[in-house]
Amino acid sequence: MSLGKIWVLAEFADAKPTTATLELLTAANTFADKVEAFAWGEGVVNYAGVLGDYGVSKLYDIGSLAGSLPGPKVAAAMAEAISSDSAPDAIFFATSYDGRDSAARLSARLSVGVITNVVNLVANGSELNAEHAIFGGEMILTSKFAAAAPQIFVIRAKSFAPEAKEAANCEVVSASVSDLGSTDGAKIVSSHVEERSGPKLDEAPVVVSGGRGLGQPDRYQLVEELASLLNGAPGASRAIVDAGWVPYSYQVGQTGKTVKPNLYIAVGISGATQHMVGMKGSKNIVAINKDKEAPIFQVCDFGIVGDASKIVPKLIEAIKAR
């Protein structure tokens, strides 16, 4: 193993670890002898089992956040554990809302830099080299930290495939945080869930996304119908999310979801670099666009040049007629 100890911020939704968390734990296990995790919530002790399955030997329980946003308390708990215990060689955060906030707070507290938008890590002796996809995934830039620990990495979803290890015993220790004063002022008053049906966008084997080229909001129904015929999930470019056609949770790309389905169909999407970083890893890509110069055609396996409002209904009909 190249590193001694790696910490991972483990995020949970409905008492289950997020897929990104499992990806980070799997990566951490390949680089370090010892993997430890931090988690917040009411019943963190109950998380020890599943984290043990993913090689976590020690779980720091930050406890209930009592409505606070996680960033300040996660950073404080980690900083405290570093000063009272021993610093890890590296800390992994997911590129999630709370992961990014926590990494940023910790970086400023410790006055150490962060490496973000990581899509792959490669061990080089006791260092980790981080790969970023830049210019829409056209180039890969590799960077590393100049000085020693802790190296803070913020890692994009789907960069590693999650894989459980032999179940191991995971010890739970308290990492509760004392009053943080002003930095901890932001409180969640209520949570709202935007319902969506069908498979989850970032887990579906097929994703059909629509963009501004659909022309008008009601044509998004074509995207939804095609997605459902293919047992897939509907997605979107930012242009139509910003325009209010579909909720933000549909967005694919740099600031939205990263998807790597078996099949990605882009309908009326130009293929801006910020969209491509979220879908370029798809196994097969189909594009429908009326402009044959659209950048999306450079990455697609199969493309049709034409009007989406005509092609998609014909395609739906042809699939139904089979």
Binding site: A13, S96, A186, I188, V189, S191, E194, Y248
Partner: peptide, 11 residues
């Protein structure tokens, strides 16, 4: 914004 929808937050 959250993964599931949105939170109302005050500060």
């Amino acid at each position: 914004q959250t993964e599931a929808g949105f939170d109302e937050v005050t500060s």
